[in-house]
Nucleic acid binder design. Structure first.
Length: 426
DNA sequence: AAAACTTAT
DNA sequence: ATCAATAAGTTTT
């Protein structure tokens, strides 16, 4: 360690930018020992890069957007009787409260450091060591690595700065899929209608299972996690609550290899939420976090304090969503995604900047071929072709074209992509 | 409908 | 020096 620890953050580097550079998963996951110090190292490591400059611009744009919203709020709040707005909000909230349903037992199961723990089974020497899965950008990090602030989605070279002993392990997707299938097969036994949210997490409604097996929710989930472990050698954490949102938040409470049950009572739910960071709420990412923070909302409990502002600015903040979040009255419907609900399929590649048009078109052909292969494999098709392209400045653009016929062949995909891309060459 | 923006794994 | 791939939903134009 050198004496740079005390080096102050450059003045133009706002707090929000430093936080932004630390990546989207920071703050969602539990905080490491000294997140401020970690953020500083990350900001320093990425400083001056094109990525950094792009993030800086996005941060500035967001700050301006927030300023505008605050002006709108000032206009909206002027000349109104806040007391009566609050009463209107209270009536709105009371109406939502009357819809509370505590009858369903929802579970969110979340595999612990999934990719990392699968790799551990194939390479036990990694046990106890900090390692990350993936090259370039990490898919996940072992718990030892997380202590240093290493996170999924983090570029390897920054992870290495945070944890110089970090070991890089290549990813093996077929291994993860095999384990994922094994886990999901076990979960299906507890709820045939369960919803797999990605390869390492799932939502279940275990109300019927508990009833027919004469088990409490906690006993059922304990047994479920034990069965998963015996069948796969992998640990899972779980949350038990009356809604999907609450179950998901609870699954984080005793991670790894633990479970947490929220009492199925209104007051317990409200107090659980009251000091919970708004960032933990599914759907609140780093942008909405800043938006809400700007009007004083940092926790779910703050939603009530600022209910008048939210009520007045329905469009900007979405009062139904926020009031439901405050109450913990959100969806408790668990159902599988049926195949025909699929909305899009895509393929993308990142490569070092090319100025040669022919070479770029060659890349386009590659993704067209891969996309055709993926579509064929599963019998999918579509009528809108969207071309997405990213410059070396990290700016992202999309161009789309909708047809009145189904597009399936790589030749059509390539031709459409080329047509959409050509006007962009200059 | 197209493009941008946000979130999530 | 170096920051992904994929999908879905929302908002704006």
């Amino acid at each position: 360690m050198s004496n740079d620890v005390a080096e102050p953050i450059a003045s133009q580097e706002t707090e929000s930018l430093v936080k932004r550079l630390a990546g989207p998963s920071t703050g969602k996951a539990g905080l490491a020992i000294d997140q401020t110090e970690i953020n500083r190292i990350i900001a320093k490591a990425s400083k001056g890069s094109k990525f950094y400059e792009n993030e800086k611009k996005k941060d500035k744009d967001l700050s301006e957007r927030i300023e505008k919203i605050l002006k709108q709020r000032d206009d909206a709040v002027r000349d109104v009787d806040l007391r009566s707005i609050e009463q209107a909000a209270d009536r709105f909230i009371a109406e939502l409260e009357s819809q509370r349903d505590l009858s369903q037992i929802i579970v969110h199961v979340d595999m612990d450091a999934f990719f990392a723990n699968v790799e551990l089974l194939y390479n036990p020497d990694l046990k106890g060591k900090p390692f990350g899965v993936g090259r370039g950008v990490l898919s996940t990090a072992s718990y030892e690595a997380r202590k240093y602030g290493v996170r999924s989605g983090m570029p390897g070279y920054i992870a290495k700065k945070l944890c110089p002993e970090l070991i890089f392990v290549s990813s093996h997707f077929s291994r993860y899929m095999e384990k994922s299938n094994a886990v999901m097969a076990i979960l299906r036994g507890y709820d045939p209608n369960f919803y797999a949210a990605g390869c390492d997490e799932a939502y279940l409604n275990i109300t019927a299972y508990c009833e027919s097996h004469n088990l409490t929710a906690a006993e059922c989930v304990q047994e479920m996690r034990k069965t998963v472990f015996e069948g796969t050698q992998l640990t899972a954490s779980a949350g038990i609550a009356p809604t999907k949102m609450l179950a998901k938040i609870c699954s984080d409470k005793n991670k790894p290899n633990g479970q947490f049950e929220l009492p199925f009572e209104k007051d317990a739910i409200l107090s659980f939420l009251s000091d919970l960071s708004i960032r933990k709420v599914p759907g609140v990412g780093r942008v909405n976090e800043r938006l809400l923070e700007s009007i004083g909302i940092k926790t779910c409990g703050d939603i009530f304090t600022h209910r008048a502002t939210i009520y007045l600015m329905e469009k900007q903040f979405g009062r139904q969503y926020l009031f439901r979040t405050y109450l913990g009255i959100t969806s408790n419907v668990v159902q599988p995604i049926s195949r025909d609900e699929r909305k899009s399929i895509g393929a993308e590649r990142t490569f070092s900047a090319l100025s040669d048009k022919e070479k770029i078109l060659q890349k386009l052909n590659e993704v067209a071929e891969e996309l055709e292969k993926d579509m064929k494999q599963n019998g999918w098709t579509g009528r809108t072709v969207t071309l997405k392209f990213k410059l070396d400045t990290f700016q992202v653009f999309t161009r789309a074209k909708t047809f009145d016929r189904w597009i399936t062949k790589k030749e059509e995909l390539y031709a459409t992509g080329k047509e959409l891309l050509t006007p962009e060459f200059h």
